[in-house]
Amino acid sequence: MGNDISSNIGSINQAQDKSTTTSTSTSVLKLASVVLGSVFGFLLVSIGATTFDLQAKMFLFQDFQLPIVLGMAVFTGATGMWMLARMEAKSLVLQEEISHVTTRITPKLALGSLIFGIGWALTASCPGTAMAMLGEGKLTGIPVVLGILIGTVLFGVYNKRSK
């Protein structure tokens, strides 16, 4: 399985060599990803997701800012995706079909989610907000990001062994 990633990246590199059009669209995809990430980071701060007190108050049922944002976002997102599906819209950069991929419910999903939740409660951060915090000058994001990298490596080790 490990080869898939490198072959993925490899195929992009090969594509870059083969045609300038593909190379341009790869650069556009990368740039678009950085811009989208910036917009999302800005939004995460705007909604208060990087505000520790709002995270604490959410868990203690004292404030419902973040749960309302999440619920409203899923509702809005689902409406938008339903519209895209009806329009059979294609993606802007690559003109591909827009992914509506669904995944299966597995014991790993449940266990992983349980572990993730404990990490969320301990750090008042998520993989997305921890990075946005770094830009805001909230230095507690550094150990959290470091931990996420460690956890990701540990999963890699576990995943390779279990195969």
């Binding site: 995944t103 790993k108 951060s125 931990g147 999963f155 890699g156």
Partner: peptide, 29 residues
């Protein structure tokens, strides 16, 4: 915080996504 982050990283990979991928993007579809 490193320990909590480790749980976030391991848990997210085991579950196949975090708050962004599962709740927001997965929720939208």
């Amino acid at each position: 915080l490193i320990f909590g982050g480790t749980l976030l990283g391991f848990g997210a990979r085991l579950a196949g996504g975090c708050t962004t991928g599962h709740v927001l993007a997965g929720g939208a579809v």
